[in-house]
């Protein structure tokens, strides 16, 4: 086999397709991106972020500015707790809160600012604490928690902005309420599963 043939064979071998794993849990993407993806890859977190964002947007971001600040601060506190503690098993509480907040979005009542702040505090705290990845430590963990914090803020802001923007016409408000009922329904079901007696 000539040199040209070898080169051709090498090229063909290189072109053999292999599976591209977007979420190879999660090697090679770095700890920051690992943390950034964490709230996206944990459906319970995603549901709570969607519910809280829609809830605060529905209540009017201007009116609940204090709750937005509370959410941001509580997330930081939660991430600091996550730095010291691993795997506190908060998923059931996260689901219970997302079911409650989803139900509030579906019912769309006018909620007093104090309650908005309490809900935001609980959500931020739980999401932050539950972002700990037990297999990481030191600088790796710091980068991962930082990434999770960034993702938590953005993922709460998107639904918040959506609920605030789509708050003019009747059908827009209905759409937000329907999404709230979906969040509540999904959370309630898995909550039931986690509380069900194990076979």
């Amino acid at each position: 086999m000539s040199g040209k043939h070898y080169a051709l064979v090498c090229l063909l071998v290189l072109l053999v397709p292999a599976t591209a794993l977007a979420h190879s849990p999660i090697q090679g993407i770095g700890n920051f991106y690992n943390g950034l993806l964490h709230p996206v890859l944990v459906p319970a977190h995603l549901l709570l972020l969607l519910a809280v964002g829609l809830f605060l947007g529905q209540q009017g971001p201007k009116r609940v500015e204090l709750a937005l600040g509370a959410f941001a601060a509580a997330t930081v506190v939660g991430l600091v707790v996550a730095w010291f503690a691993n795997d506190l098993g908060l998923e059931t509480l996260v689901l219970a809160l997302s079911a409650t907040v989803g139900l509030l979005v579906a019912m769309s009542p006018h909620i007093a600012l104090t309650w908005c702040v309490i809900i935001a505090l609980l959500a931020g705290l739980m999401l932050g604490i539950d972002s700990a990845q037990a297999e990481l430590s030191g600088q790796d963990k710091l980068a991962s928690l930082f990434g999770s914090g960034v993702a938590i803020y953005f993922l709460a802001l998107y639904p918040l902005a959506m609920a605030d923007y789509f708050n003019q016409k009747a059908w827009q408000k209905i759409g937000i309420r329907i999404v709230g009922s979906w969040v509540a329904a999904s959370s309630l079901l898995v909550l039931a599963l986690s509380l069900a007696p194990k076979p």
């Binding site: 139900l103 579906a106 209905i174 309420r177 329907i178 009922s181 979906w182 509540a184 329904a185 999904s186 309630l188 079901l189 909550l191 039931a192 599963l193 509380l195 069900a196 007696p197």
Partner: peptide, 20 residues
């Protein structure tokens, strides 16, 4: 809008009965 909101919420209750 009431029916599509009520349905998933009550459906979740039925689902919870199935789960447990």
């Amino acid at each position: 809008w009431i029916l599509p909101v009520v349905f998933p919420l009550v459906m979740a209750f039925g689902g919870a009965l199935g789960v447990i």
